[in-house]
């Protein structure tokens, strides 16, 4: 009885956590894969310098460039331009591609900056 109770509890928990996990997992994909996927994904790339970023009232649009192929993805971020955006080395956009307006709707942006602690020697 006791064993059955705990096993049932454990099975219930694993199923519950598994379902939640399946909904929340966002795989890292390339820009090409992001375009063909309809679920939440993460795309990493560089800021496309030829694409002028635009800020409207509550939406920030910029170009994310694939490091390998050079392909550019238009990203619409639901918010304002993040603080360290201009110094960004890599940008990771988390969200979903919308084929209707040919852009990637990002819920979250992760900005990776070059570390201030690395590799800069004083000028001589």
């Amino acid at each position: 009885m006791r064993k059955i109770f705990f096993i049932a509890l454990l099975v219930g928990f694993v199923a519950y956590a598994g379902l939640n996990l399946a909904e929340s997992v966002t795989p890292y994909v390339s820009i090409a894969e992001a375009r063909s996927s309809s679920s939440n994904v993460q795309v990493k790339g560089l800021l496309d310098k030829n694409f002028e970023p635009q800020q409207t009232c509550d939406e920030f649009t910029f170009g994310l460039q694939d490091e390998a192929t050079g392909e550019t993805l238009r990203v619409k971020f639901d918010g304002v331009k993040p603080d360290q955006f201009d110094e960004a080395y890599h940008i990771v956009a988390v969200g979903k591609y919308d084929a209707a307006d040919e852009s990637f709707h990002a819920k979250k942006l992760l900005i990776k900056c070059p570390s201030k602690y690395e590799g800069q020697n004083p000028k001589s």
Partner: peptide, 23 residues
């Protein structure tokens, strides 16, 4: 551990922070 675990089964992935709150 998701970035690590997911690579055991295939492509790398991470979870949304919603996952923690919701679960």
């Amino acid at each position: 551990s998701m970035p690590l675990l997911s690579q055991l089964f295939g492509e790398a992935a991470s979870v949304d922070t919603d996952f923690y709150v919701k679960s």
